[in-house]
Computed example of a mutant assay.
Amino acid sequence: MTKIDPTFYLKNQQPKTASNGTLGKDDFLKILMAQLQNQNPLDPMKDKEFVSQMTQFSSLEQMTNMSESFQNYMNSQNRTPVVQYSSLIGKQVTYPVKDEETGMVDHQAEGTVKAVSQSNGQTNLELEDGSSVAVEEITKVSNEED
């Protein structure tokens, strides 16, 4: 009878640094390999079981890769407010105009967004009349024909 490699004993395993308590694809592959190496030669793993486990592993790997890709996409979108506000191009926006002497809101103005720009951490909408408005000041967004 073959002996079990002592490195597979739980007491000889290195503790994991991840504390979330979930198994990853590497853990799944290690378990599968240990199962294959230590199976009973008189009763080997059935083909259906093996195919099922490989399918689960493949699905796990694809979901992990998709999750990482989606997370990278979301991170890239959050870093670029210009892309986030680009949907306002061609839209009619309303914003307050302040009196220069008092600093109080004098009236509301409207304009059509021509472009979106960013400088010094501030995202601005450039309007067709040449003026520029900070996105934080926008009070209404509508289609041009509204």
Results as ranks from 00 to 15, higher is better:
D27Y: 14
S58Q: 05
Q53Y: 05
N40H: 03
Q84C: 10
A134E: 12
F28Q: 11
K46L: 11
Q92P: 09
D26Q: 15
E49M: 13
N124K: 13
S119R: 13
F28Y: 15
Q39F: 02
K140D: 01
F70G: 00
E126M: 12
Q84M: 12
E68F: 11
P44G: 11
M33A: 12
K46F: 05
D106W: 00
D26E: 15
G24R: 04
E126W: 11
S52Y: 13
K114Y: 11
F57L: 14
G21E: 03
S58N: 02
Q71T: 15
V51T: 06
E137K: 15
K114C: 07
Q53E: 12
L88I: 07
D26N: 00
N65S: 05
K25T: 12
P81G: 10
E136M: 14
K3I: 12
N72Y: 02
S19V: 14
F57D: 00
S86I: 01
S69W: 15
T139N: 08
M54R: 13
S69Y: 00
G24N: 08
T7K: 08
T22Q: 07
L23Y: 12
V141R: 04
T22Y: 12
Y9S: 13
L32R: 02
F50V: 09
F8E: 14
D99C: 09
G90V: 02
N120F: 08
T139L: 09
V82I: 15
V82S: 09
D5V: 02
L125V: 00
A34L: 15
A18R: 00
K16D: 11
Q14S: 09
D43N: 06
S69D: 05
P6S: 02
V116E: 01
V82Q: 08
D43S: 14
S117W: 05
K11R: 10
Y73H: 13
K25C: 11
L127K: 06
S132D: 06
Q37D: 09
M33S: 13
G130T: 06
V93P: 09
P96I: 01
E100H: 08
A134S: 05
M66C: 00
L36E: 06
P44Q: 05
K30W: 07
